[in-house]
Amino acid sequence: TDVTFHVNGRNLHLKGADEELLRRIEELIRRGADIEELEKAVKEWEK
């Protein structure tokens, strides 16, 4: 799945995201995470 999140005026584009990653990103956004936290979560998922 390709999806782009718009967070605090910045874009986080995910290519090939699975349901697990999407749920994790949505949860972080609900908690008020900043873009750096979201990018870190994506990097951890990519490993």
Rank of each mutant, 00 (worst) to 15 (best):
R24P: 00
I35N: 02
V3R: 09
L12R: 00
L38V: 05
W45I: 04
K47P: 12
L28N: 02
H13L: 09
K40M: 13
W45Q: 05
E27F: 12
L12I: 09
L22F: 04
V7N: 03
I29G: 01
F5C: 06
R24A: 10
E36Y: 08
E44D: 14
E44R: 07
W45F: 11
H13D: 04
A41W: 08
R10V: 15
E20G: 14
W45V: 05
H13A: 05
L14A: 01
E39Y: 09
G9N: 05
F5E: 02
N11I: 15
E44H: 11
E39A: 06
R30E: 10
D2W: 08
L12N: 00
A33C: 11
D18S: 15
K15F: 11
N8A: 06
A17D: 04
E19T: 13
G32Y: 04
E20F: 13
W45M: 05
R31D: 10
E37F: 09
E44C: 06
E39F: 08
G16E: 05
L22C: 05
N8T: 02
W45Y: 14
E20I: 11
R31N: 13
K40Y: 13
G32I: 01
H6M: 10
K43M: 11
K47G: 14
N11F: 15
G16M: 07
L28A: 07
R23K: 14
T4Y: 06
N11W: 15
D18E: 08
V7P: 01
R23E: 08
A17H: 05
G16Q: 09
T1S: 11
V7Y: 09
A33V: 08
K15L: 06
R30D: 11
G16K: 07
K47S: 08
V42I: 10
A41F: 15
E19Q: 13
K40G: 10
N8C: 06
L38E: 00
R24M: 13
D2N: 06
V7S: 02
E36C: 05
V42T: 04
E44A: 11
T1R: 15
G16R: 07
H13C: 11
L22V: 15
E19M: 13
K47F: 13
E37N: 06
W45H: 11
N11D: 15
E19L: 11
G32L: 04
A33W: 12
K43Q: 14
W45D: 04
H6C: 15
K15D: 05
R30M: 12
E36Q: 07
V3H: 10
L21Q: 03
K47Q: 12
I29W: 07
I35T: 02
G16C: 05
E37Q: 11
R24F: 13
L12D: 00
R10I: 15
E39Q: 08
T4S: 07
H6F: 06
G9F: 04
L21I: 14
L38H: 00
D18F: 02
L12F: 15
L38P: 00
I35E: 01
N8G: 08
F5T: 02
G32A: 03
D34I: 08
D34N: 09
E37G: 07
A17M: 03
L38Q: 00
D34E: 12
W45R: 04
I29Q: 02
L22W: 02
L14H: 00
L21D: 01
K43W: 11
E27Q: 09
E20S: 12
A41T: 11
T4G: 02
L12Q: 00
G16W: 06
L38G: 00
A41M: 08
E27S: 12
T4L: 05
L14D: 00
N8D: 09
I25R: 00
V7Q: 03
T1F: 15
N11T: 15
G9Y: 02
H13F: 08
D18Q: 07
G9P: 00
N8V: 01
E27W: 12
T4H: 07
E27A: 10
H6L: 11
K40E: 15
V42S: 03
D2T: 08
F5L: 10
K15S: 07
E36W: 08
R30H: 11
A33S: 09
L22T: 07
E20D: 12
R23A: 11
A33G: 05
N11G: 04
A17L: 05
L28T: 01
D2K: 04
E39V: 13
V7I: 10
N8K: 05
D2A: 03
I29E: 00
G32D: 04
E20C: 10
G32M: 04
R24D: 07
D2G: 04
A17N: 03
E36R: 06
R31Q: 15
G32P: 01
F5G: 02
K43P: 02
I35G: 02
D34T: 12
A41P: 00
L12P: 00
K40C: 05
K43D: 11
I29S: 02
V7A: 03
R10E: 15
T1K: 15
V7C: 08
I35Y: 15
F5K: 02
L12V: 04
A41Y: 15
E26V: 14
R23Y: 10
E39N: 06
F5N: 02
D34M: 09
H13K: 05
V42A: 06
L21Y: 01
T1P: 07
I35W: 12
L21K: 03
K47W: 10
I25L: 13
W45C: 02
E46D: 12
A17W: 06
K15I: 10
L14F: 04
R24K: 09
E26C: 09
K15G: 03
A17V: 09
V42Y: 04
K47Y: 11
V7R: 01
V42P: 00
R24H: 15
N8I: 01
N8Q: 05
A41E: 14
H13Q: 07
R10P: 03
H13M: 08
E27R: 09
G9W: 03
L12H: 01
V7W: 04
R31Y: 14
R23G: 11
D2F: 05
F5M: 04
V7E: 02
L12W: 14
R10A: 15
E19S: 11
A33T: 06
I29F: 07
F5Y: 11
N8W: 02
E20T: 12
R23Q: 10
G32R: 03
L12Y: 11
G9D: 09
E39L: 14
K43V: 10
K43C: 09
H13V: 15
R30Q: 12
R30V: 12
E19R: 12
E19I: 12
D18R: 04
T1W: 14
A41C: 07
V7K: 02
R30P: 01
V42W: 03
R30Y: 11
D2S: 06
D18K: 06
I35S: 02
V3D: 02
H13G: 01
E19H: 12
E37S: 07
E27M: 12
E46K: 12
K47E: 13
H6T: 14
